[in-house]
């Protein structure tokens, strides 16, 4: 499955400034593995040492939060949009 991953401003240093990058995978976890091969270091910002999603970053497949689906095992459909939404506090 090929998906488009939306990269927030704070993580664009990993993607050479690109706000959307392609990645392949059957699940969200595989998408992040593929993403990390192309952009080393980015996965660690989203997934912790235990292999769980960090609790201050949300990952959406289309408009659904994967924490309420199957987490990193959530399947992705071909052409899906995976969005990384970081917690920010600026005001």
């Amino acid at each position: 499955m090929s998906v488009q991953v939306r990269v927030p401003t704070v993580l664009r240093s990993y993607t050479g400034g690109a706000k959307e990058v392609p990645a392949d995978g059957e699940t969200v976890g595989e998408v992040f593995d593929a993403l990390d091969s192309a952009h080393p270091g980015i996965k660690e910002r989203v997934v912790d040492e235990q292999g769980e999603l960090r609790r201050f970053v949300n990952v959406y497949v289309d408009n659904e939060d994967v924490r309420f689906a199957d987490g990193l095992k959530t399947p992705v459909a071909d052409g899906a949009k995976v969005s990384i939404i970081p917690s920010v506090a600026g005001g």
Partner: peptide, 20 residues
């Protein structure tokens, strides 16, 4: 429900650090 925990200090820059 949206963000159960804050990011660890230093991980997310503030506007004073990163601009707005």
């Amino acid at each position: 429900d949206l963000y159960p925990e804050p990011p660890p200090p230093g991980m997310v820059p503030s506007c004073a650090e990163g601009g707005v």
